[in-house]
Design a protein around this nucleic acid. Sequence first.
DNA 1: ACTGAGAACGCAAACGCTTACGTTAACCGT
DNA 2: ACGGTTAACGTAAGCGTTTGCGTTCTCAGT
Lengths: 340, 340
Amino acid sequence: MAGPPAAVRLSEVAAAAGVSIATASRSLRGLGGVSDTVAEKVRGIAEDLGYVTNSYARTLAGGSTTIVGLILNQIDDPYFTEIAAGVVRAAEDADLTVQIGHSTRDPHRELKQIRSLVAQRARAIIIAGSGYTDPQRELQAKELLARYEAGGGRAAVIGRHFLGVDAVQPDNRGAAGQVARHLVELGHRDVVVISGLPSLTTVEDRQGEAVKVLAAAGARVTVVETDFTGHDAGRAALGALDGEPRATAVMALSDAMAISVLTGLRRAGVDVPGTISVTGVDDVPVAELISPSLTTAAFPLSELGREALLLTTRPQATRPRRKMIPAQLVVRESTAPPRS
Amino acid sequence: MAGPPAAVRLSEVAAAAGVSIATASRSLRGLGGVSDTVAEKVRGIAEDLGYVTNSYARTLAGGSTTIVGLILNQIDDPYFTEIAAGVVRAAEDADLTVQIGHSTRDPHRELKQIRSLVAQRARAIIIAGSGYTDPQRELQAKELLARYEAGGGRAAVIGRHFLGVDAVQPDNRGAAGQVARHLVELGHRDVVVISGLPSLTTVEDRQGEAVKVLAAAGARVTVVETDFTGHDAGRAALGALDGEPRATAVMALSDAMAISVLTGLRRAGVDVPGTISVTGVDDVPVAELISPSLTTAAFPLSELGREALLLTTRPQATRPRRKMIPAQLVVRESTAPPRS
DNA sequence: ACTGAGAACGCAAACGCTTACGTTAACCGT
DNA sequence: ACGGTTAACGTAAGCGTTTGCGTTCTCAGT
C-alpha cells in the first residue's frame, strides 16, 4: 500500500459538519439522540464528500456485515443467473452486497464455500440449486448452517429440502405434473422422459410426478438419465427415440435439456412438433426465443431469488419457513397432438 | 447475536502457545523474525483450536482483502453473465471471492458501486460494459480508480476506453467490420443498421465501422437508434423496413437487438433470411439456439472475464495494459444473398 | 571477558467505527 | 427561581489484527 488513504472517513465528515464522530455515526445510521437538523446536515455532507462506511471497521466495532453470500450450482446456466439477478437486485434495494460462488454441484466445494462465508461473517447465506436425495450427503452442510444460524446468521435455500433453514421451493412436482398432463391431453401415449442424475432431489421430484401422471393415463414411458446440464441430452434423446420408434413426445425435465433435445432433433431433421413434441421445465428466457419456441412450465426465476433474499432479512422463525412457488404451464410451439 | 461459541481469537492462540500476539501473528502469516520451532508450534495450536482469522480485523489493521469487485452494466444479460462466469471461475482458481454489483448503465450508480468497493478495500475492481463517448461523463470514475490504484488496488475494465486502467478490449470495430463485409459479399446493398445509444463507445465503434464498410461498398445505409438493450429493437426494425422497403438486410449491433429483430420479423411474417437477412454481434449462447440461428461476430465472452481477472492479479504496469480480443465471424442461418 | 551484530520476540500504536456513559443545556412544574 | 427531566451531544473504551520499533539474548570475533 504505497499511498493516499483513498477513502473519506467518518471523522472527516464529522469535522466538516462540526460535530463529534459519535453524533455523525448516529446521524448516518438513523439512530435517535440526534436532532433532525443536525442529522440532516451530516447526511448531506457525507453525501457531498462521497463518504462510504468502512465495513471492516463497522463490523469490527460490533455492527453487522452487509454481505450476503450466494452459492450457485452453476454460474453460467440461465436458470441460475436469473435467480442470481433476483437476489442481487433485492440485495441492492436492501443495501446489501452479494458475494457469488459456485459449487459445480460438488458437495465438497459447496462446504468450502459455506465455511468461507461463515468466516467472513456474512449476514446471510443463500444456496441455490438442487439438493441430494441422500440426506447423508448434506449432513455436514446442514450442521454448518445450524451453527451459523445459532450464531446469528441467516440462511435460505432455493429448491432444496433437507437443509433445515428457510426455503423457497419451486413446486417441481406440480410443474412436471402440469407438463405431463398437457402431453396427455394432447393425446400422447408413448413418451420419452429425459431425466437427470437421480441423486438430485429436483430430478427425483420432477421425474416421479411425470412418470406418475403419464402412467396414470396409460402411457408408455421410457426414462433416460443424463447429466442434467443438457450437454448430451440431445444425443440421449435421439438414442432413445431409435429404441422407441413409436414415441411421439420427449419430455425433458429441464429447459436446458429440452433445448439440447431440440437442437439434436433439428440436426437429425426431425420435425418438431410435427413428428415429435418436446417440452421442458423452468421457462428460462431462451425458451421463448428459440424456434420452435418451447412449451414448458414457468417458474418466476428472478422472484425465487428475491424471495430468498427477503426471507433472510426477516428474523429467524422458530421453525424453518417454506415458501412454495407454483409453476405455470406455458404452451408454445413445440407441442402438438401426435400424428395419428 | 445470542452469543454462542465466540470465535477463537489470536490472543487465545498466543496465550496457549505462550507467546505474544505479535509473534503469533507472524507465525501464522509465515513472516520472518520467528524461529521455526515456535512458528510450527503456534500453527499447530491454531489448528487445534480451530482458529480462523477475523478478516475484518485483519483488513482494518492493514492487511489485504481477497475480494474482487465486479460491476456489470446489466445483471441479467447473457453477454454479461458469460463474462461474469469467466471472472468468477478465474477468481476461485486464485482463491479470491467475487462481489457482484450492477449499474444499469447509470454513471451515478456506477460511481456508488466503485466507492463501495473501494471502501471494502476490494483487492481489485473489474468493470464490464461499454463506456461513454463523452469522457467528461466518466471523469469521476477515472479519478476514483486512479486514487484506488495509487492506494495499491488493482483495476481492470472490459470493453472501455477512457478509464486509465488495464483493459480487455473486444475488437468492436473489427467485429462490426467483419459482419458488414459478410453482408457486402453476399450482395446486400441496402441495409438497415439497428444501433444503440450513441453515447456508448461500443455503439460508436461498431456503428462507425459498419457504416464505413457498408458505405465503401456503395451500399445505402439507414441507421436507427434504439436503447441497446434490445427491448424495442424489433419494433424499430419493422418501422425502418417500412420506410426502406428495398432494404434486404438488418444489421443489429448486438445479439440482444438482433434477437429482438428476429422475433419482430417472425411475428410480422417476414421470411429470414429469404426476404431479409439479419446479423448480430457478440455471439451470446442463445445465438446458435434460436431459429434461424444467428450470423454474428463471436467474442470469447467468458475468456474476456478470465483475462480481466488475470490482469488484476499481475502488478500494475507503468502504463495501462490493453489486451485486444479479436472477434470471429460466425455464419449461420440468418443470412443469405438478397433476393434478386 | 567484552563488544557488536543479528535473530527472536514483545510493546503498543494504529485501523475506522460503534456505543455505553457522562456532560451540558434547555425546559418543565410548582 | 430551583430541583428534576430529558433531549442532544461529546468522550473514550473497545473490536481483533498487523507492524514499526524497541528490547533481550545468543554467539562469533578479538
